[in-house]
């Protein structure tokens, strides 16, 4: 087994027992070391999920696991770079074995590397965003979808962005990665619903995390990631398909999507 797939942290080993009166759902969060991913982990741990938490940053993940487990939760950490596409199937299998099954997968991992101005271009940055935000998601969600389809059960949540709803001047690569992810999730939903699997697409507006610092210009309606996490978990339980968070972004994006191109071309956001 590859080095990367060796679980790290203090609570590895056997799955937490589940009984009819103390049921446990098992969740995997990819991109859980910071921001929204970490908040989702805290929230789901409180709801009784056993969790596998993935990201590159081992120290941050371990600290988060320690925090969760010291409050009676059950979280395992796995250091992993989502661009190690080939390592995904074996790592997924290890995680499913350590969790004792799998009911929920949330793909959060993302980078936001703007090209540095509306007249600048940067292929390396674009490529990194496509690889992490889109191909990484496909690398993970492909074997996950296969499993859930075969089990006729499971739930997939993909964190996309309002940024995928239109191509804008600021960060073409990021827009493209999120537009691709949104479409990919929609296609997965159309395939998997008939097998009893729910796919939820989440489109956050602005959240007060590290990533927000990359955003040039004003960031209206920014919410705490913990608020977004609550909203997402609620939508998950209702087995919704697409949500905007904060909800107001649904209306803002409705307007933005209908701005005609001859005007949109002249805008500088």
């Amino acid at each position: 087994m590859s080095e990367q797939s060796t679980p790290i942290g203090s609570t590895q080993g056997k799955p937490a027992p589940a009984t009819p009166l103390n049921p446990r759902r098992r969740g995997l969060i990819i991109g859980a070391s910071a921001g929204l991913g970490a908040e989702l982990a805290r929230k789901l741990a409180r709801e009784g999920y056993s969790l596998a938490l993935l990201a590159r940053g081992k120290d941050k993940l371990d600290a988060l696991c320690l925090e969760i487990n010291s409050q009676g939760g059950n979280a395992h950490s796995y250091a992993h770079n989502v661009t190690d596409f080939d390592k995904v199937p074996a790592l997924l299998q290890t995680i499913v074995a350590n969790l004792g099954g799998l009911d929920l997968v949330i793909y959060v991992a993302s980078v936001n590397n703007p090209p540095g101005g509306i007249d600048k271009f940067n292929f390396e940055n674009d490529r990194a965003m496509i690889e992490v935000n889109l191909i990484g998601a496909m690398a993970w969600l492909t074997p996950v979808a296969e499993m859930f389809q075969s089990a006729k059960a499971g739930q997939i949540v993909g964190i996309s962005s309002v940024a995928g709803d239109r191509g804008r001047v600021g960060n073409p690569g990021y827009n493209t990665s999120k537009a691709g992810l949104t479409t990919y999730l929609e296609a997965l939903r159309n395939r998997l619903t008939r097998h009893g699997v729910n796919v939820l697409t989440v489109k956050p507006g602005f959240m007060k995390t590290e990533m927000l610092k990359a955003a040039p210009g004003p960031t209206p309606f920014a919410i705490e990631p913990s608020v977004a996490a609550d909203h997402i978990v609620k939508a998950m339980k209702k087995r919704k398909q697409v949500i905007y968070t904060a909800p107001i972004w649904r209306w803002i994006m409705l307007v933005i999507q209908h701005v005609p191109s001859f005007i949109f071309r002249r805008l500088s956001f």
């Binding site: 009819p20 049921p23 075969s150 499971g154």
Partner: peptide, 20 residues
Amino acid sequence: LNLNATFTQLENFGHSLRAS
């Protein structure tokens, strides 16, 4: 995985427990 394995959600008799 092979040997014709299928990933399956299994239950106990009373449908009060599930594990894949």
